[in-house]
Design a protein around this nucleic acid. Structure first.
Length: 420
RNA sequence: GCGGACGUAGCUCAACGGUUAGAGCACUGGACUGUGGCUCCAGGUGCUGCGGGUUCGAGUCCCGUCGUCCGCCCCA
């Protein structure tokens, strides 16, 4: 083998692709019921777009970005996530002039240069959703509700929904100070990772899993006790609305997200089925991001679902029947090949999935192929039958066969196919 | 970025450092000259991931590299 897949990349085909298509079709249907519109943004963008929105001190920016320079020396990047691009598009096309809310969804590949594991790839895919112009917690609740009915539609249960509020630019700085003071004299009792986090991103210390840190930090101040009045009310309303919608969730004040732009609501949907990569969807509110990119002050909220992880769960929760041809056209020799070709095209033109051998091989082989392909009806275009102006048909499931005229053949196939 | 395991046929896996590397499933053809599945027969089933090294001799031992998996970091 001369060439093989780059590390962390994958080919998606055969059984898996049916799942991908099924998931995408269902996502589209549900998202459009909620009046989200699809948006397609480029995979390559100015690197600064991501560096500034995600945050310079985050892992994504520090070690995971695919950055390179194009022929004009522009610093560009493969997108590591979708929100920044949609925000860019929202501002660039003045979509804030349209009536709020403006709601978008996208499917597509994202790129992060990480060490691959199960459920973690360098090119991975997300279904993303972004809603602009609404600050009401109703929108946050709606996003979580949307996630829930989508995942239920895919028959995935046993998921854990966790929410938190990270406050806003008014209350978070105060919390940071409290946190800093609390941690200042404990730093050298913490694990190496936490000591590093203390310098760079103290919030991350909250979800450290090292037992000794957990012990040292059991009385750590929590953001939820320091929210300003508006943030507190926002968070309480969100919970009320989730209750109304019968969504069971956990308030986890230790959830912090890996991107810096979040404000107020953040949430995660996790599973215990995927090992270390347990997050299957996550998102939150980012009320300051549009303005920080030069747009008008615009509240916004969104989330992303990890396709590969979703597909992994669907392998257990769904069993899809593979796509098969309904009719297989076999023929008995080169003298009737042209007639077979005509029939194949005729069937396809009336939307009957049809397969054939394309080559002059024995009838036995053709029937074998028809069987392997899962065709229900085989039509045999035979020299003897053509002399009588009829086609031979064979029902592979009922083990019956007979001869019939072209019109009757098409009519019967049509009726049988439609009743499947 | 750090630590560990693994890599043999399309797939699942065997082979004490010692002949020409095997089994099942799948695949192709035939028995059946114009009729699938079942059975039987015959067969590609292969640069043992790749490149070096040790050795009389390497699928096996060593080094490098590529890839997969697991844990950490982190994330979807």
């Amino acid at each position: 083998m001369k060439y093989s897949l780059l590390r962390g990349m994958q080919d998606i085909f055969s059984e898996q692709i049916y799942l991908w298509q099924y998931i995408e079709e269902n996502a589209r249907k549900i998202l459009e019921n909620f009046n989200f519109q699809e948006i397609r943004t480029p995979i390559v963008e100015n690197a600064e777009l991501f560096l500034r929105s995600i945050g310079e001190d985050t892992d994504i920016v520090e070690k995971e970005m695919y950055i390179f320079y194009d022929k004009k020396g522009r610093k560009v990047a493969l997108r590591p996530e979708g929100t920044a691009s949609v925000v860019r598009a929202y501002i660039q096309h003045n979509l804030f002039n349209n009536p709020a809310p403006q709601k978008f969804y996208y499917f597509g590949p994202m790129f992060r240069y990480e060490r691959p594991q199960k459920g973690r790839f360098r090119q991975f895919h997300q279904i993303g959703v972004e809603a602009f112009g609404v600050s009401s917690p109703w929108m946050d609740a709606e996003l979580i509700y949307l996630l829930k009915i989508f995942l239920e539609k895919l028959n995935i249960n046993n998921l854990i929904y966790e929410i938190n509020s990270l406050g806003c630019k008014n209350c978070r700085p105060q919390y940071r100070r409290v946190l800093f003071n609390f941690l200042a004299d404990k730093v050298n009792q913490l694990c190496n990772d936490c000591q590093r986090r203390f310098e760079k991103n103290p919030l991350r210390i909250l979800d450290c899993k090292v037992p000794s840190c957990k012990e040292t930090l059991k009385d750590i101040p929590l953001i939820t006790d320091f929210l300003c009045q508006d943030c507190k009310e926002h968070f309480i309303s969100l919970q009320k609305e989730l209750n109304e919608m019968n969504i069971s969730y956990i308030v986890n004040p230790r959830i912090v997200r890996g991107l810096d732009y979040y404000t107020r609501t953040v949430f995660e949907v996790t599973t215990t089925m995927l090992g270390a990569q347990n997050a299957i969807a996550a998102g939150g509110r980012y009320d300051d991001l549009v303005e920080s990119f030069g747009g008008p002050s615009t509240p916004a909220s969104g989330f992303a679902i990890g396709m590969e992880r979703l597909v992994e769960l669907c392998l257990n929760s769904l069993s899809l029947k593979p796509k098969k041809p309904f009719v297989y056209v076999a023929y008995t020799g080169s003298s009737v090949e042209k007639d077979a070709r005509k029939l194949v095209n005729l069937l396809r033109n009336i939307n009957i999935p049809t397969e054939t051998a394309y080559e002059n091989i024995s009838l036995k082989s053709q029937l074998r192929k028809a069987d392997k392909a899962g065709a229900t009806i085989v039509v045999i275009v035979g020299e003897e039958e053509l002399k009588k102006n009829v086609y031979r048909w064979k029902n592979m499931k009922e083990h019956s066969q007979g001869e019939t005229t072209l019109e009757q053949l098409l009519e019967t196939i049509r009726r049988r196919y439609d009743s499947e």
